[in-house]
Design a protein around this nucleic acid. Structure first.
Lengths: 222, 222
DNA sequence: ACATCGATCTGAGCACTGTTAAGATCCGGG
DNA sequence: CCCGGATCTTAACAGTGCTCAGATCGATGT
């Protein structure tokens, strides 16, 4: 306990850590700003010099945590081998996504749920980008026909995200990480096979826009 | 205002209605039990004679609302025509699912998020069952090979749920209901095509279990 | 060396929340 | 007619997010 100084010095980060620990212990909503402050050893109102509201804390935490998800996805694809079958790489990415969520359900729930409000934050590497790059490899390798590439990210993302959310919300149950991997594998392969055999779109699709890519738009034509 | 009696008589239902209205107005979490009670014209503690906690209210509301989702899915498939192409029916079901969510995002978020804790409630018709029945039709019609039928519900469900959640959480944006329909259409067709061209599983898959079907298990072998 | 300034943190306090306990009120059955 | 039990009320408790006036401190300029 020795050196408790008046000025904490690292309060912002310490609050984020404490909040994350509390989320892990008691669920995405089972904690209070006061509790996090107390755990850091600081008065409740001190937090308001670093976050404008509890919600701001939650959003900041969400950013950190989503960045880790992006790293995890990138690491999973990298571990699958650089030159190997790009489909295998995508499967690895999918397993990484879903397992990340299942291993820390409360944190994942907070991270996913906080995306709703406010401007899309700058997260690096952004999960969306990692997925995007991997899909580009797939069309490059000829596994995914170019006409089906547009918006394919959203189809794959939806399937993965759905599986993750169903699992962390307890709507579907799977025993053990390898069962999770197996299900993620099946989902990714099914979606990708289906996209590959899609008839070419009759006319231009109305493109979905992700909150992330929207942030850096501006010069692209409407 | 006339007949304000001491005993409300219909308080449980009235509270559910008030809560749903509040959710619609102010978001899934932007309301309090006290507020719902006040809106009904009743003291805060009166609610505790009908719901053991605020959480119980939320779960009960979630049940009502999920039952409406089930009805909507059933209605959508029915509207697609009884004898028509079962794939078209499934697409209609998927559009129903996703559009139900986007049309009332806050209510949908509450309904989906409340599934986590407690025993799976008895909902009729349960969305899971409606989807299940439709997939059976697909294998019956030969569109989906029988070996791929096992667990296919979870793959389709994941894709639909993921799209719905991405939309209601604002992570993906689509303009207008027909863009939503089109995306749901694409997702359903992709997943189903992919499942249809799946190689037969080398050995038995570890079956996922939904919280709903689990409720009525018991006599099936472990 | 020293005053001072701005950033950082404290303490008290407000309006509000979920929840409980003890009492008022009313409906239906003896 | 009266009374039991269901239904609702009032009062209160601890805990919440948040604000604001002041205390404390590290760094800066002279």
């Amino acid at each position: 306990m020795g050196k408790r100084r008046y000025h904490h010095g690292e309060l912002r980060g310490a609050l984020l850590d404490a909040a994350e620990a509390l989320v892990r212990e008691r669920g995405a909503d089972g904690w209070s700003l006061r509790e996090a402050s107390a755990r850091v050893g600081v008065s409740p109102s001190a937090a308001y010099h670093h976050f404008s509201s509890r919600d701001a804390l939650v959003h900041a935490l969400s950013e950190c945590v989503l960045a880790r998800l992006g790293e995890r996805m990138a690491a999973a694809t990298a571990a699958a081998g650089r030159g190997s079958d790009p489909l295998r790489r995508l499967v690895a990415l999918g397993c990484g996504y879903v397992r990340w969520a299942v291993e820390d359900p409360a944190v994942a729930r907070l991270a996913f749920g906080a995306g709703a409000t406010g401007p899309a934050p700058a997260i690096t590497p952004h999960p969306h980008d990692v997925l995007d790059a991997e899909l580009d490899r797939l069309v490059e390798a000829g596994t995914l026909p170019a006409p089906s590439r547009a918006g394919a990210e959203f189809v794959v993302w939806a399937a993965l995200h759905g599986l993750a959310v169903l699992l962390i919300d307890g709507l579907v149950h799977l025993d053990g990480p390898q069962a999770v991997d197996q299900e993620a594998d099946r989902v990714v392969r099914a979606v990708l096979n289906g996209l590959a055999q899609e008839p070419p779109p009759p006319r231009e699709r109305p493109a979905p826009r992700s909150a992330h890519t929207e942030r850096r738009a501006g010069r692209s034509a409407t």
